[in-house]
Amino acid sequence: MKFGVIRFPGSCDEVDAQLAAARVAGDAELLWHADRDLHGADAVIVPGGFSYGDYLRAGAIARFAPVMESVAAFAAEGGPVLGICNGFQVLCEAGLLPGALLGNTGLRFLCRQVELEVETADTPFTRACQEGERLSIPAKHMTGRYWAPEATLDELEANRQVLLRYAPGENPNGSARDIAGVSNAAGNVFGLMPHPEHAVEELTGSTDGLKIFQSLRDHCDERLAV
């Protein structure tokens, strides 16, 4: 299987995402924001960074990038899409994920390891994890406070779309109900604020992030086999 990782002007984590994906799948290609062709990717990663400078609102401009039209079409056909940090913001702005990301309640850029709990494990993005398992993954952002109307939050929980929560006492940004990562209703689009691509090597403290990439690889292998 093949991963495609989008590169916008202002992306900064696309190479780490590419390397993490290549670790589990062997094949990961960067996709240019102005190119509508997804180059045969079986899974698309929208990476972290500051797309187009995020001058207006995080993710607000990137959602109009030519490549995002193809990502929306790919997602509509059930193709798996993973948004990390800025990628999560872009997917929310694009309406591919519910809710929005607001400025951290602490008003500061935060950059630290956070502890996550896997809430839903039978998904394309978390199937290599156990429910209740803890993942230690770094987070680094200014605009990471997940917010959605109360009724939407109730729906997300009822539909098991909350895949990851910050562990009790770990919520770094004021996210509603400690939500760290949510999927769309169909379950094939997932966004999270922490950076699994930065937690793939013992040298930097944790390899827990690999499980997200392994999950996605296994899901794609299975999807391709059908």
Binding site: N104, T105, L107, G174
Partner: peptide, 10 residues
């Protein structure tokens, strides 16, 4: 502006 009811830390 932020909608009413949404925390505005600024």
């Amino acid at each position: 502006r932020p909608k009413a009811g949404i925390l505005d830390p600024q």
